[in-house]
Design a protein around this nucleic acid. Sequence first.
DNA 1: CCCAATCGAGACGCAAACGTATCGATACGC
DNA 2: GCGTATCGATACGTTTGCGTCTCGATTGGG
Lengths: 206, 206
Amino acid sequence: MSTQAATAARTGTRRSKIGPERELELYGAVLDLLRERGYDAVTMEGVAARTKCGKATLYRQWKTKSQLVTAALAKSRCSLFTGIDTGSLAGDLRAAALAAAGRRGHDTELMEAVGQAYLQHPDLRRALRETVINPEVAALDAMLRRGVERGEVAADNPAITFVAPGLLGLLRVERLFEDRFGQEDALPAYVDAVILPALGIGPSDT
Amino acid sequence: MSTQAATAARTGTRRSKIGPERELELYGAVLDLLRERGYDAVTMEGVAARTKCGKATLYRQWKTKSQLVTAALAKSRCSLFTGIDTGSLAGDLRAAALAAAGRRGHDTELMEAVGQAYLQHPDLRRALRETVINPEVAALDAMLRRGVERGEVAADNPAITFVAPGLLGLLRVERLFEDRFGQEDALPAYVDAVILPALGIGPSDT
DNA sequence: CCCAATCGAGACGCAAACGTATCGATACGC
DNA sequence: GCGTATCGATACGTTTGCGTCTCGATTGGG
């Protein structure tokens, strides 16, 4: 395997011995530490220890913790909602809710972890937005656009704007309402009870 | 002024010289530091320095940082939504949205700050819930109950459950969507576009 | 097939915060 | 008033993470 494929592009002329799979291993450790203990607890020494990697090696590739975390976020994009297309807007949104409920905690914890940090580090906020938020929002927007084209919802329905923030926001506070609706089906229920009525789609319209 | 009123209840027989106003001053500094830099950056030395208070004094009253922060959260309750009663559910919800938009950032930053920390400290999560979340939720529930009693909304409308989490969740993600709707009127627009339609209340019903 | 550069590992000095202990000065309770 | 406990302030040793540096071992390029 051409081991400096990913590295050459990043470090320029330097010939690093870190292969792409090793790179993802490092990023994975960063994201795991993020989820487990939060941004402030992500430590170069912690990453080095967990990945059996020398600290100097980390500093050779990334100059600061902020860069390392940003890079880890940027390279680990896997969208929840992308690819959903059931043929109807209601079906799409329900499928999205199910997908979010399934991976619950995984991405939510990531957002919790950088929640405070991104208020102070604009580059971190940008990375989070471009990596985690924007792809999901784009996928939801695509669903809505298809729904508009199919005539399922009016193009000027003001609720359209709030579908994505509402859904992600609900994900963001579920931990605080776990006594109320910590259940698996909270998100699909939200789609049926709030989003679809606001969009003017009845429960019968598949 | 009876200076150990608040203290006697906390420390038992010890006679502390910290008066109630001084106590609130300390708590205020804790909350300010929380909002400015996040939970992990709240430091006993930082609090001591900002309040011109000896570290030993802090340790005399609170054994750990977690206790100090929890106490600060618990004693600083001031609900946004409590007291709103315009006579109609739509009016109440719009007033609540305006109130939240006005104090925007203040409580949101507090939630961001403890967002990651409360995943690991159950007592901290409990304090946040009882202090910041529950009063607001109770006030919203009271609005909804009055709306049900007035016949403005059906008692079994499933959207009722999602009014409070939806509103607080939107507050929680606004920073991530600031390119979309960072405006002041985002929350009132959400009420009109999503919540009221989902509750079956038309725009004309005051 | 050899040289050079990177690897993992860890020692090093520095800085920050912890939690404790000590110190006059102050203000409360009796 | 007087004694005493708490006050604010600060010194102290410890711990933790930073970022740099050195060390054999390894490995890829020419």
